[in-house]
Design a protein around this nucleic acid. Sequence first.
DNA 1: GGGCGCATGTAATGAGTTACATGATTGA
DNA 2: TCAATCATGTAACTCATTACATGCGCCC
Lengths: 172, 172
Amino acid sequence: MDRRLLLLGLLRRQEMHGYQLNEFIEHNLAYCADIKKPTAYYLLEKLAEQGYIAEVDEAETPSNRPPRRTYRITLEGEHLFYTLLRENLRRDQGLVFPVDMAIAFIDALSSTEAHALLRERYEAVQQQLQAMRDVPQHSGPLQLVVEHHIAHLEAELAWLDKVIGWLADEAT
Amino acid sequence: MDRRLLLLGLLRRQEMHGYQLNEFIEHNLAYCADIKKPTAYYLLEKLAEQGYIAEVDEAETPSNRPPRRTYRITLEGEHLFYTLLRENLRRDQGLVFPVDMAIAFIDALSSTEAHALLRERYEAVQQQLQAMRDVPQHSGPLQLVVEHHIAHLEAELAWLDKVIGWLADEAT
DNA sequence: GGGCGCATGTAATGAGTTACATGATTGA
DNA sequence: TCAATCATGTAACTCATTACATGCGCCC
């Protein structure tokens, strides 16, 4: 659902072929976009079938390169783009944190072991946070996305501290 | 993956039948557990096939009630439980926020419309936060889960404020 | 007699992933 | 000559969901 928004949003700015889209996503949106290559190709094919994007026939492939399919967005695609955009902005489909299940049963472990595992987790989150801080400053709305991640990673670290504190209390 | 952890974790405390598990989850873990009834039944069947849980033959069904399948955890199940628990505690599989895709393209909307949509979102998140605050205080680790959600919902609200502020700046 | 609670499932579908296939060109 | 880059895809599979089916007993 949101993957279609991603593809349409990029094609709206510029016509591109699949490989180019995948590269762009991997290099510039890796931290927020979640799509694998075959999924992208599949989705492009489907969006094209449904008339939301169209293959650009005039697009030529450099002669010494594999043939490529270049797409542009159609009017219906623009329309779908706006629908998806509005829907995704408006609605919050409340998050589920997989770790919660582990926390719910954390008392099955000795507090020593739980502590060690949580420290590992803490450090992993800290690294993600550092990675986000290292992302070069964007000018447009992408900067907001980076700040979004930073905000949640910081919240996660603070909460992990609390959990570790709770563990220590329980241990006594 | 984490759904198996949920079922095993509950069965580890007490043998139960499917309906009972589903009721318990719906009434006590609705905010953090993410599993539908048919999935639970399916998973129970599979866990039983694989020997991680076993049907309790001595369990009797009240005569005027539909027959039920009661399960208990096995030794192998305990083992799997601990493996999943450790894995889920240790690893953080970094979150992806679907809204990020919409934010990335938010400049396609007039700042007036974007503002209105974000306000809707803000209120929805605020309601989720209130719902979490209304959850009665737990004593065990479940309290940590509630606090986890509260922490992230608060972070989300603060970030939304920032986004709304950014919109206002852009508009000028 | 009509709806709810109890209790278990099946069938069809969806959405996405992994692993693999292909084949040309470019650079070390 | 060996690996990497360019470029597109297919096939098989996983995981979970939705919608539906079934049937008894209880209560109003």
